[in-house]
Design a protein around this nucleic acid. Structure first.
Lengths: 218, 218
DNA sequence: CTGATATGACTCACGAGTAAGTTACCACCA
DNA sequence: TGGTGGTAACTTACTCGTGAGTCATATCAG
């Protein structure tokens, strides 16, 4: 390919690179993705990426920022409904499936075990995780207070369990690409009822998400 | 260091290398552990490792085999008690904490996200995971049958949730080194009762593990 | 003196990051 | 309208470090 500008403005090129990189990082993981891979997938050369993003870590940070914003806005949306407990859990899961459906790689980009432990992108991830942590911990703490357990370590462990349940449901869905967000939300409701008892109050409205006034039966 | 034998038989040297390598792989992950690291930690030179294990992957495979055997024997022991449901869950967790206490790195060695996806060690891991998968899936399937849900995808998703809960409890414990297996088992019982209701039938016998005749109240 | 145990010093591949140069667009001027 | 310099956009071809894997050689037990 000959050198020289192709008439693409920096902002446009950056956006294009970030989109390609998000996908690459998300589908293959940070460690298994080389900058050359991203460059090739974007149809440009490696130095251009270094020109615009400084380093592999810098590029990753922008991707993480983008992905975390997508997930976070979804969590905030669910929180804003004012529901609590299992209803909120199902609502959040449902929102996540819908948000993720057109860009599934976003999830693994944020929860990437091969992401660097230090540097700009690690800082971005940490910041996101702290916000998320607070959100989840508060919810769990409140539920456990109601159940009569206020031990901090118990709350912390329960929170870990809750987060991993959430992640495993999303992960399972990502591993079964044929299943629609709707069907998966209904599956979650079924599973929750199996474990926690009847949850009929949690009705799924077929095309448009969950009824936001639903309340868990427990 | 001068060359030449030091009077250590191959079998002994291999065992020593594997022990050191298990620790290194488990604590730092496969990707972040170089063969030179292991050699240095074992007080020998890199070529000796290649002489005995063929490759980094070969060494890792032996470590994985060893670690998987430890975990598997613990799972089998719990299974052999004949308990079912939550009682078995708590029993298995308790056994795992005790088995892991003197060699905590074993766990992360088996559940290492940076482990290679192909090769001998990947095959060993896959084999172990398949056995474990069957064990867990059968248990979950039976419980869900009792609850009236036999949908294969529901069972599969529930199984994923169950495994991730198990892993997150062990992971949380590993992240809190000050907590004894006993204390952690009791915590698990508390958390299960919070979620599933009263479980008083599940008594912990302070020094010697769980009462094996315990039955969940659900 | 033979073979098992052991090592120092290498090669090689790969991926992050860089130096230096090339081309096209565009504001400005005649 | 048609040059013309400046700059933003872009690439080729490199360096450099790291870690997997190998080769030739050295030492010691039996």
């Amino acid at each position: 390919m000959t050198a020289g500008t192709k008439g693409v403005a920096r902002a446009d090129r950056e956006a294009q690179i970030v989109e390609v990189a998000c996908r690459a990082f998300g589908e293959n993981g940070y460690a298994a993705t080389s900058v050359s891979d991203v460059a090739e997938a974007a149809g440009i050369s490696k130095p251009l990426i270094y020109n615009y993003f400084g380093s592999k870590d810098g590029l990753h940070a922008v991707c993480v920022e983008h992905a975390a914003a997508v997930l976070w806005s979804e969590f905030e949306r669910s929180t804003a409904t004012g529901t609590v407990g299992l209803a909120r859990a199902v609502l959040t899961l449902d929102g996540m499936f819908r948000a993720l459906a057109p860009q599934r790689w976003i999830w693994r980009l944020v929860f990437d075990p091969t992401a660097p432990a230090q540097g700009v992108s690690a800082d971005a991830l940490t910041a996101y995780e702290e916000r998320l942590f607070t959100l989840g911990e508060d919810g769990v703490k409140e539920l456990m207070r109601v159940a009569g357990n206020t031990d901090p370590d118990d709350v912390s462990a329960m929170h870990a369990v809750w987060e991993s349940m959430f992640r495993s449901l999303v992960g399972w869905w990502l591993d079964h690409p044929g299943i629609s967000p709707d069907a998966m939300s209904q599956r979650c409701v079924r599973l929750f009822s199996t474990v926690f008892g009847d949850l009929d109050a949690l009705a799924i409205t077929p095309g448009g998400g969950l009824a936001s006034d639903a309340v868990p039966s427990q």
